[in-house]
Simulated scan of single mutants.
Amino acid sequence: MKENNQLVVFGLNNQHYGLQIENVSEIIRIMEITRVPNTQYYCKGIINLRGAIVPVISLSLRLGLEENKLGRDSRIIVTETIKGKLGLIVDSVYSVTRYSNDEVEKSETMNGEDRFIKGILKEENDMILLLNLKEVMED
């Protein structure tokens, strides 16, 4: 039986990633992003989301991947943690899925080297890499 854990499943560079739904406040279409000088290479700028200033990053660049051009399916996943809000630009958002903790596997090949990935969830013929949002938000 599946526990009540839920993931927002999204795509980056033809790979599926998952983010725990309790960290997601909303998913929005790409909007105008105001650039901020002297920020990290993966920081795209800030957006005004109903009066709240939200920093936005390219999740692809943050994870060390090649950045795709923004397209019709591109989205900003607005996350919220104790540290505040952060917008993550992703190639597309697919679904919300349920999973149980015992379905999550640690990768033998990663050997804990990828601090951005908490584990792997196998689903049918696909693998979903579970994102460690806390590490993504660290400088």
Rank of each mutant, 00 (worst) to 15 (best):
residue 44 K to P: 11
residue 130 L to M: 05
residue 67 E to R: 09
residue 43 C to H: 15
residue 37 P to K: 05
residue 41 Y to K: 03
residue 19 L to Y: 10
residue 112 G to K: 03
residue 13 N to I: 00
residue 5 N to Y: 00
residue 22 E to V: 14
residue 123 E to C: 01
residue 73 D to C: 03
residue 71 G to L: 11
residue 25 S to R: 13
residue 102 D to H: 04
residue 106 K to H: 00
residue 59 L to M: 13
residue 96 V to C: 10
residue 90 V to M: 00
residue 134 K to S: 12
residue 22 E to L: 02
residue 97 T to E: 04
residue 66 E to D: 06
residue 28 I to N: 10
residue 107 S to W: 06
residue 95 S to N: 09
residue 108 E to H: 00
residue 79 T to S: 15
residue 41 Y to H: 12
residue 49 L to V: 07
residue 75 R to V: 11
residue 102 D to T: 06
residue 5 N to E: 04
residue 78 V to Y: 09
residue 62 R to T: 08
residue 14 N to H: 14
residue 5 N to A: 04
residue 35 R to K: 07
residue 135 E to D: 02
residue 82 I to A: 13
residue 33 I to L: 04
residue 90 V to I: 13
residue 106 K to I: 02
residue 26 E to M: 07
residue 51 G to E: 14
residue 7 L to K: 00
residue 22 E to M: 01
residue 139 D to Q: 09
residue 42 Y to E: 05
residue 79 T to F: 11
residue 45 G to N: 06
residue 79 T to M: 02
residue 36 V to R: 08
residue 92 S to E: 13
residue 103 E to C: 05
residue 31 M to F: 10
residue 109 T to R: 05
residue 36 V to W: 01
residue 51 G to C: 14
residue 76 I to G: 07
residue 7 L to S: 02
residue 3 E to S: 03
residue 2 K to H: 02
residue 7 L to V: 07
residue 50 R to Q: 06
residue 64 G to T: 13
residue 129 L to R: 11
residue 90 V to W: 09
residue 70 L to P: 12
residue 12 L to D: 01
residue 82 I to C: 08
residue 133 L to W: 08
residue 85 K to A: 15
residue 139 D to K: 14
residue 87 G to T: 05
residue 51 G to D: 08
residue 104 V to N: 01
residue 8 V to F: 12
residue 88 L to P: 05
residue 134 K to P: 00
residue 62 R to C: 04
residue 24 V to L: 09
residue 50 R to E: 05
residue 58 S to T: 04
residue 100 S to P: 07
residue 76 I to C: 10
residue 16 H to Y: 08
residue 77 I to H: 07
residue 111 N to H: 12
residue 52 A to Q: 15
residue 136 V to H: 00
residue 124 E to R: 13
residue 99 Y to F: 06
residue 44 K to T: 12
residue 110 M to R: 07
residue 54 V to E: 09
residue 116 F to T: 11
residue 67 E to G: 09
residue 114 D to S: 08
residue 56 V to W: 02
residue 39 T to Q: 07
residue 53 I to W: 12
residue 66 E to S: 14
residue 137 M to F: 03
residue 45 G to T: 03
residue 123 E to K: 05
residue 77 I to Q: 04
residue 129 L to C: 11
residue 131 L to V: 02
residue 30 I to C: 08
residue 49 L to W: 06
residue 128 I to C: 02
residue 43 C to M: 06
residue 73 D to S: 12
residue 66 E to Q: 15
residue 35 R to M: 12
residue 51 G to A: 15
residue 111 N to M: 07
residue 39 T to M: 11
residue 44 K to M: 12
residue 51 G to M: 13
residue 134 K to M: 06
residue 77 I to R: 02
residue 76 I to Y: 12
residue 68 N to I: 03
residue 30 I to V: 09
residue 28 I to F: 15
residue 43 C to K: 14
residue 55 P to W: 13
residue 83 K to M: 14
residue 136 V to P: 03
residue 118 K to N: 08
residue 52 A to L: 12
residue 50 R to P: 00
residue 33 I to H: 01
residue 6 Q to N: 08
residue 69 K to Q: 11
residue 28 I to E: 11
